[in-house]
Each structure stands twice: as C-alpha cells, then as structure tokens.
Nucleic acid binder design. Structure first.
Ligand code: SF4
Ligand code: SF4
Lengths: 137, 137
DNA sequence: CACCTAAAGGACCATATTTGTCTTATTTAT
DNA sequence: ATAAATAAGACAAATATGGTCCTTTAGGTG
C-alpha cells in the first residue's frame, strides 16, 4: 500500500542528479537518463513537467538541456513527489467535505487526515539538497 | 498519491460495521453490504479474506454469516488495511536489501523508511473498537 | 434423507492506470 | 542553413482496479 510509482522514483532520481552537478551546469537529458538509469523519453516528460512548475529550467536547441530552477535547498521532496504523483491523499474524502456523504459522522476520516499530515511533515522536511549531499559517494 | 483503494475503504467500513453489532451477533453479508453501501459480492470477497487470517469468523449454511474473530479492541486499523492492500510500503526498496542496487548509498531510502514508520505508527494506534465507537450516531 | 440457506471459490470482464515508445514540431547556437 | 536539443502529442502493451456471475461446499431443518 501507498507505493510510489516508477514515475515518482524516477523523478526524484533525476532532480537529485541535477542537484549534484556544479551549480549553473546544464545537463543533457541523455546524460541524466543514463546516469540515473531511467528510460530517456520517460524522464524527459518528467523533467518537462518540472519545468512547467519552475523547479527546473530547460533550454532548447544546441547547447540546451536541464538545470535546477532554484537552489536545491529550496526544493522539497514533497514538491517533487506531488508534482508527479499528485497531492498526498491517503483517502479521497480528504479532498473536501461532501466527497463522501459519511464524512460528517465518520470516525475513520480523521485518521486519514492524520496520516496525511505525518507524511507531508516528513516530505516537507527533506530538501533536494539534503538528498544530493547524502547520497554522494 | 498513496490513495487507499475502494477495496481498502470497503474493508474498513465492513469490519467497523461488524464491530457495531451486539457482540456474538452473526450478520448476513447481504445486510452488511447494504448497511455500508458496498457491492455485495465484492464485500464478500473481502470478508472471506479476513476470515482466512482470523480477524473475522464466518459460518456457512442456514443461520450463517459473519462476526468478528476477536474483540474489536484487539484488531488494529493497520491489520485491516494491510490485509487487503498489502504492507505499508511507500517504496519497493523497503522490502529488503538488494531490491534496488542503489540502496547502499541512496539518501532517499531512509526517508521512505521514516514515512513508513510514521504511517504504521498511526494505523497501529487505532483499533476497530475506536472507530466503531467514534462513528456511532 | 431431501431441501433450503449461506458462504467459498473460481472464472471472467470492463475500465483505468502505469510505463513506456514513436513521430513530429519548435527553438536555439553556430 | 543546419544541426542540436527539448516540447508536444499520439499511440500501445502490461498491469491493477473494481467489479460480476456461476458453481461448489457446508450447515440447518423437517
Ligand atoms: S467512510 Fe469515512 S473514511 Fe471512508 S471515505 Fe467516507 S468519510 Fe472517508
Ligand atoms: S534509488 Fe534509493 S529510494 Fe530509489 S528505490 Fe533505490 S534505494 Fe530506494
């Protein structure tokens, strides 16, 4: 239960790799994909979606590639995960009142809320910088 | 991300309903399914899987049905969820060393371990009795 | 015993999601 | 111009989800 998909796993690997390069360096998707062992076209989509929300920057054409959109210390693991997997949502009913007609009296509802909070807490507390530093050889 | 499936949601509703009946009472699947608003045959499969691991008891034939296999106070939400959704596992690599060849140096790995622990902690801390009591009218 | 009741088991199926690939634009540097 | 890259979008195989339906087995009852 609660498994991260490949997409999520790949997304993290990709952005952590970017954070391990010298700041300002632009990396080719082909290089990144090989380094983190992810199918190139798949990773391309992921990084493109990151570009849309600004956590990476992309440059087209000759000399192009990808780099971080802001300092790794200001990108949280939560942002990365939610960007590709959607919000942390242990149960649909957390979306808003009325999603489940039982939510008024339901005793389970608050438990999911708590699970959500705990997970968010952990993921918010980890930055890509932390990860990049920790898993260097 | 991390969404409970219908099966998980239904499983909880079903067993909480059982816990709300008078102890010892045997309930028909048809009654339970209607009460908790779940397709009957689907719920039947779920309760059958519960019967296999002992958290509910089932009786066949005339006068048969389902009841809890042990006091609601000794059935945790975690057991119920894991019974139908599998272990709480935010990432495959938590299964064991060697699942991912990067797990030795990987800095992300421990984060997932922590997420797992937090979630397990919450779900272990809630019993079906708690839920049954809380969501009574 | 015969018969009814109810769960158990298994085959099946429709739909959605995951995990990609491939092709065709665009953009940019030289 | 041309070559180098990403962007966008269509497509598709594999898997997971969310069920249904039918037959079998077990247990009561007269
Ligand atoms: S029954 Fe409770 S836990 Fe389940 S979806 Fe509704 S509000 Fe949420
Ligand atoms: S790279 Fe790290 S987090 Fe990802 S699967 Fe491997 S060990 Fe786990």
């Amino acid at each position: 239960m609660m498994e991260l998909t490949r997409k999520g796993e790949y997304a993290i690997r990709g952005i952590v790799h970017l954070a391990q390069l010298q700041p300002g360096k632009v990396a080719l998707i082909s290089e990144i994909a090989e380094a983190v062992d992810v199918p190139q076209t798949f990773l391309a989509k992921i990084l493109q979606s990151f570009a849309k929300i600004g956590i990476v920057k992309s440059f087209r054409g000759a000399g192009g590639g990808f780099m971080l959109g802001r300092p790794a210390a200001r990108i949280t693991l939560r942002e990365v995960v939610e960007a590709v997997e959607g919000p942390i949502l242990p149960n649909r009913c957390l979306l808003g009142a009325g999603t489940c007609e039982r939510d008024g009296t339901c005793g389970v509802h608050p438990v999911w809320r708590q699970v959500q909070q705990r997970v968010v807490e952990v993921l918010d507390g980890v930055t890509i910088e932390d990860l990049a530093a920790r898993d260097k050889p």
